[in-house]
Write a protein that binds this DNA or RNA. Sequence first.
DNA 1: CTCAGGCGATATTCC
DNA 2: ATCGCCTGAG
Length: 735
Amino acid sequence: MDISHLIDGLNAAQREVVTAPPGHLLVLAGAGSGKTRVLTQRIAWLVEVENVWPHAILAVTFTNKAAAEMRARCERLLNRPTQGLWIGTFHGLAHRLLRLHWREAGLLETFQIIDADDQQRLIKRVIADQNLDDTRFVAKQGTWLINAWKDEGKRPRDIDPGDNPDLMRWIDVYAAYEATCQRQGLVDFAEILLRSHELWLKQPALLDHYRRRFSHLLVDEFQDTNTIQYAWIRMLAGASGQVFAVGDDDQSIYSWRGARVANMQAYTRDFPGVTTIRLEQNYRSTGTILAAANAVIARNSERLGKELWTSAGQGEPISVYAAYNEQDEARYVIERIRRLVGEDLKRSEIAILYRANALSRVFEEELIRHSIAYRVYGGLRFFERAEIKDALAYLRLLANPSDDGAFERVVATPPRGVGDKTLEDLRGAARAADTSILTAAAAALRAGAIKGRARSGLESLGALIESLSPGNASPLGASDSLRLHERLEQLIDRSGLRAHYEAQSKHDADSRVANLDELISVAREFVLSAEDEAAGISEMAAFLSYAALEAGEGQGEAWDDCVQLMTLHAAKGLEFPCVFLVGMEDGLFPSQRSIDEGGNAQLEEERRLAYVGITRARRHLTLSYAESRRMRGQETWNRPSRFLSELPRNTITEVRPRAQLSRPGSYGARARVASDDWGDQPAIGLGTRVSHAQFGEGVITGAEGQGSHARVQVNFEDAGSKWLVLAYANLVVLG
DNA sequence: CTCAGGCGATATTCC
DNA sequence: ATCGCCTGAG
């Protein structure tokens, strides 16, 4: 057999990984070291050389994007459809298990996935139902707590509150939330994993079946697994399953959702005879970019140890641009993009990366102004938009009438004369009769307990649902024969949802209506996967699950060649010839939270994020920051990110160089104030009293930079300490 | 009782 | 800029 296509072009370490003999393997793969390639070629090796059935392989990753990529590469490599090969995200695969074995998992057949937003709403409801003080028991905090417990694999009974009364209450909330979800057939993200783990725990026969089937498990991004995911893998592997784990501790950026780098060490301890192989040769970036990345990450203390190297040339230096404000930053970045596109680069080869989604806006505006096609990943995703969730709530209610959250959403939009009071009564009735609100509403109508506008509103809603429910041959038309998108369209039109959004004749109304149309066309294009069909999952249920799990990634695929905008988190695993890392300011990146609290651990995670960002770039890398930025409607002055000062001096070039600083190469160092550099200004120095139009009077406590970039720190009597750009601040020197 | 408009407080990162 | 809460009109 010709196996050359599986190993040609691999370096020694990569080859060792791909061709490793049976057994457990831990691959410490640095950024750009060919991790995905090695993973997919290993799968091909197993199938073609070791004669492992594709059926016996399960490969798991964290993002849908990565899963799709892996599947595509496998198909290309094996040159056939990857039938029976399970590739997906943890959540996607666990969800499939729950659909297949809903009964054994103790779920309703019609169970639905709720997103983080729905979850928080529901927890808020539970807190209210328990008559807890919602200023002390905040839904957001409760959501966080419950998710953290679930990520740790804990049920309410597993948690020891000690003598902490608040914690005891929270555990009650958790238990009540759990009961509510159970009754309504709802499953949140963390529950998907926990439930499928418990499914195996409680059904040894089932576990045995899957252990027999999946003899080979491959786990990507192992450093991001949390406790329950690790337990899931460990359980499925059992004594005989072979585990192939790929990870990079330097790219662990998900500790906030329970990821434990320690799982990498645990793996070598819990599984016998794990072979560890390091991939340290980088094939992606220039020597300069790598040197910068290495220097930054070297400042972290907790590392397994790994240093990337490349045989490629040094390449060009990293650009650092100091913008006056966020508009200036966007203008500069887009101008550079225009020039690059004018030369040889495709738009899709350029990425703008940022720490928080809110930063994308200025760049979008500037891209629009210059008619440059772009695509924003993440942020408010398609299926998370209010109008889309409204429309889907109707569908959810059809799929699962006991989904009270869907009912409440449906009944409120468009307004139909059913308000708080009526709803509160219905909730009480539903609780008393231990039914869904929908059922309680029907009963209340029959009993004549509801009058007036509320009555007619509920009656027409009931009629709509009745006539469009699948399985109900409606007199108004054969509802059963409706296709998914037709059913959805009827719901949107006949419920008045479309009219409701059309009537909101504000500027954004048409985009909302257009989104509803887009949703209908997404439903039209939706195809039930072969696996789902085999599992007996209905088209409607599959579509709703898809909406929850994918949340709208893959939208806008039609535009191939567009500039990519995304957060640093979303960029992990991707690479671009040209990367702009924007918003490099203390308080933004690293985030204010990580600076204020958490000591070093949080700051180190931010630094890993910086490492991830830098290593996304192949050839061109530009970092930028704004001296002032409008945030939450307020002008703020942040200092350049401390990560900038961690870049070796010889790797960067300042696009608009500042005049010499007191400590060369060190951002944020305070320059001596030299009055003659400030032109016409009278002498200002440390300790000078000044007055500012907005902030009032204060004293200069610091200064840095010179010329047009000179900034001073002023401690204002009322407004506190601020950094101001001297050229704009119009400070008046006082006596 | 319902609902819209004004007001104040509030923001990471994602399956 | 957006969300949730409060108020007053219908």
